[in-house]
Amino acid sequence: MDRHQDLTSAQWRKSSYSGDTGGDCIEIAPLTPRIAIRDSKNPDGPVLTLTPDAFARFVEAAACGRLRG
């Protein structure tokens, strides 16, 4: 994770599967060569940046229910 990533030009987007009722949503922003992830309820909070490969594994694990909070 790059602690000095400039996020000022990041174009954040929330999944189309997310509703408007809050809940457990994340937002992502493509930042070549990484993908940034943040909690949509805390946009000024911490940001995780992953390589495209690591992001694909993260999405797969989430889709299969392998991520637990």
Rank of each mutant, 00 (worst) to 15 (best):
S18R: 11
I28C: 09
K14D: 00
R68A: 03
K41W: 07
I35Q: 00
A36H: 02
D6S: 01
A61Q: 04
T8W: 05
A29M: 09
P30S: 14
E27G: 09
A63D: 13
A54V: 05
C64T: 01
A29Q: 13
I28S: 09
H4S: 12
A36M: 08
R38S: 07
A62D: 08
T32C: 07
A36L: 09
Q5L: 14
T51D: 12
G23V: 04
P52C: 10
L50W: 10
A63V: 03
I37M: 14
G69H: 09
L7E: 01
H4Q: 14
L50C: 08
D39T: 03
P43A: 02
L7H: 00
A54C: 08
T49V: 13
R57E: 12
D44G: 13
R68T: 10
E60C: 07
A29K: 09
P52S: 11
F58G: 00
G23N: 12
R66H: 03
C64W: 12
R38Y: 02
V59K: 10
T51N: 08
M1W: 02
Y17R: 15
K14C: 07
K41N: 13
I37V: 15
S16V: 10
R57D: 08
E60H: 11
T49H: 07
A63R: 15
W12S: 04
R34A: 15
C64K: 06
Y17T: 05
T51M: 05
R34K: 11
S15A: 06
L67G: 06
L31D: 00
A36E: 02
A54I: 11
T21N: 13
A36I: 02
A63S: 12
G19I: 02
D2A: 14
R13E: 13
G45P: 06
A56M: 06
D6K: 08
S15C: 00
K14W: 04
T51Y: 03
R66A: 01
L50T: 03
G65L: 03
C25F: 05
S9G: 12
C64R: 15
K41E: 06
P30M: 15
D44I: 05
T51S: 15
P30T: 12
D44F: 07
E27Y: 02
T8N: 14
T49N: 09
P43Y: 02
R34C: 10
